[in-house]
Design a protein around this nucleic acid. Structure first.
Lengths: 148, 148
DNA sequence: ATGTAATCTTATTGATTTAGTATACTTTAG
DNA sequence: CTAAAGTATACTAAATCAATAAGATTACAT
């Protein structure tokens, strides 16, 4: 099942990682990779996709790296998810064809649409700031009661 | 993206089809297949999975077929979805391992869980009766205003 | 009994996607 | 110039998807 795949999870981790770094300072992809346990070259592909979606910026050359292109409070989880979808738009293909068919496809399609709507609503309501703050909170708890 | 795949869509169509047939009467898989435009032998596999999940019953031999094992109002879309998931339980694998990790996996996991919760809530709130009635309603509309 | 109509079971296949790896190239700070 | 970074493309092994194929099993009808 799991609607999230490794690529998306890695992207979200990477971007939360960036949100937790001091801003205005660019951060090497390898640092992110080791902190988050993501295979280095694979993360590069993901960062490239995030860049072309306008979510991160990059500075090339020695001393370069990545940083968020906007403040974490202005980036939603939904944007990351959209950036991670290869080509296949949600509901691109011909709806008329389905409507015409005498089968139950249309009703099923409506259900599917309803589910996707609710997914989008959640993802768009969660910002990177929310996720980053949540992580800080959890880390503090873990520091107080280490490995129960 | 699309959280629904062909197998699941076929299963939902098949089961809505059964809900629309006169009850207590078993219905051949081939009839369902042609009505719903599903490849015959593929539907057989799907019906087998639905059977072992206790959603449909079957009568073997000549004159046999399939029917719902409960009234459509007592079967939710969520059950169909669960029945169509091969083995991979939602959130089977070790949560502790994720919690221990210093990365952002846990926060991402929480988000994922929240999304799945909302999907389940929708799917469990929709019954086969709802879907079947909706289909009947649409078919009536289509009869009144044929191919605008 | 036997034929046949139906479900049931298992295996195979080709295409696609996933999750990486590998390699080479480009840009730029120092 | 050169080393440190990102960029780009191609490749691969494994898994999954959507079927197809072939046969086994069951039960009703005659």
């Amino acid at each position: 099942m799991s609607f999230f795949n490794a690529r998306l999870r890695y992207a979200l981790c990477a971007v939360v990682d960036l949100a937790l770094q001091p801003p205005l300072q660019s951060c090497q992809s390898r640092e992110i990779a080791t902190r988050q346990g993501i295979p280095g070259p694979y993360l590069d592909q993901i960062l490239a996709a995030l860049k072309s979606a306008g979510i991160v910026r990059s500075v090339r050359g020695a001393g370069g790296g990545y940083n968020l292109s906007r403040s974490p409070s202005k980036i939603t989880a939904g944007e990351i998810v959209k950036a991670m979808m290869r080509g296949d738009q949600l509901f691109a293909s011909g709806e008329e064809a389905i409507l015409e068919s005498s089968g139950a496809e249309w009703v099923v399609h409506e259900l599917e649409e309803r589910v996707e709507q609710s997914i989008c609503a959640i993802l768009e309501s969660v910002t990177l700031e929310d996720l980053a703050q949540r992580k800080v909170g959890l880390d503090e708890n873990l520091a107080i009661m280490p490995s129960i």
